[in-house]
Design a protein around this nucleic acid. Structure first.
Lengths: 234, 234
DNA sequence: TGCATTATGTTTGTCGACAAGATTTCTGAG
DNA sequence: CTCAGAAATCTTGTCGACAAACATAATGCA
């Protein structure tokens, strides 16, 4: 009896218009389908999604709040550019959040939290084995998000997720442009982090996360510009 | 016929409708004029601001993106509640950002950056001297924001500002409920932080910021954990 | 009376339309 | 031919309206 809606393109449920537009646009921005700096036309998007301009507008407002698009008043909105000159500030923030979330996970996780972490790590290992850079970027983010959730600090989690989102764009450009081989050592480092979390070794978790993050930062950053780094004790 | 009495003959400029609503609502939420948990009626706000529901809606979407309101789909939107049970996660994040921003300011500031920091500190000292809790909350936030700007990391700055915003609500409740005397030692601690920044003493800046933040965290948390029943007037 | 179901009223999400800026095109003077 | 100013065109911000989802009151049945 219940008709499965499925991917019916014409039938949209009531509350999900703006949501679908937001999800689609967000994915396309992070996947570089919409390149940084490209202009966004509301009416064009409205036609494409088969909705009015209102849901488009709501999605753009939300994306602007997350810094993924820039809206100039009374003028066009554009996909946010990547600030290559200040990449070091991004990696400073990312490495710090790597450390804090891993540290908190070692401190506050419950046994059940390890399950999603291990699941994400499994998928990450598969992506690395398959040399699938795009899947590796996603599963790596999922792995660290699972750790952050085990740390149980919603403020850090929200900030971290935001940074990981932006990082997806940067890493995609990195792998697209340089075809670097996917580092298998990341899989081992992840395993070491899991082990440190499991035995609640805060210092080791911190150190591993720091080395892990700085390794990524160094790889990417050395291609663009070198900047001062943030180095602190916790 | 019902001619509107004219409380809103203010000629609004085109792009500023949603902006004004957003600023007003944000201030009222942070100032507890709109108490946490209270429902928000779009049409009522539309009448009050003399605009249509569209700008109201845009402002609410932005506020939801910043976590100041919660929107349930197809149901009413409410002012976000304060999670008293997990206040420690908030202060963990706040103290860390105190440390990081002060540390980066000591590292990367330029001489001209000290001017707005000193100006904010002057106003903060005035607020403390006048025993004006509300002004103290605002000027304290401005002081630390000025330091964060001198640190020149936009990611930390954005996250820090968000935390400081939420802190305004918590501190307002704290001072309203407890009538604590405003601690003059904060003024001296601020001065010490400025001095450490000026002489680029990263370790001292970090230690000062850590002690400063933990002191505030301890004060506030000890009140809420003491079983002090907080009743908000509606 | 108690409970389920219907009828009624509210609130929200979406739409099409329209005017204010902004952008582009056109025109004419120098 | 160049360029300033005007006109046409495009885009955005806002509005009023309407239908769907939700909440509430009313009704019927056991």
């Amino acid at each position: 009896m219940t008709e499965e809606p499925g991917p019916a393109p014409t039938e949209r449920k009531r509350g999900s218009g703006a949501r679908m537009v937001y999800d689609s646009l967000r994915d396309e921005i992070l996947d570089l389908v919409l390149p940084p700096g490209s202009a966004i036309d509301e009416v064009q998007l409205a036609e494409r999604f088969g909705v009015s301009r209102t849901p488009i507008r709501e999605a753009l407002v939300r994306l602007a709040g997350e810094g993924l698009v820039n809206t100039l008043p009374n003028r066009s909105t554009m996909v946010s550019n990547i600030d290559y000159l200040n990449l070091h500030t991004y990696f400073d923030a990312l490495v710090l959040m790597y450390r804090v979330t891993t540290r908190l996970a070692a401190e506050h996780h419950r046994p059940a939290d390890l399950e999603p972490i291990r699941a994400a790590q499994f998928q990450f290992a598969e992506a690395v084995a398959a040399q699938d850079a795009l899947a590796m970027i996603d599963t790596n983010a999922a792995f660290h998000t699972a750790i952050a959730e085990a740390g149980r600090n919603p403020h850090f989690l929200a900030f971290f997720n935001r940074l990981l989102d932006q990082g997806r764009r940067i890493l995609r450009i990195y792998y697209n442009a340089y075809e670097d081989r996917l580092p298998r050592e990341f899989v081992d480092e992840h395993e070491a982090m899991i082990a440190a979390i499991e035995r609640r070794d805060v210092a080791a978790a911190d150190a591993l996360a720091k080395a892990h993050g700085e390794q990524i930062a160094h790889k990417v950053q050395s291609l663009f510009l070198r900047g001062g780094r943030l180095d602190m004790e916790l």
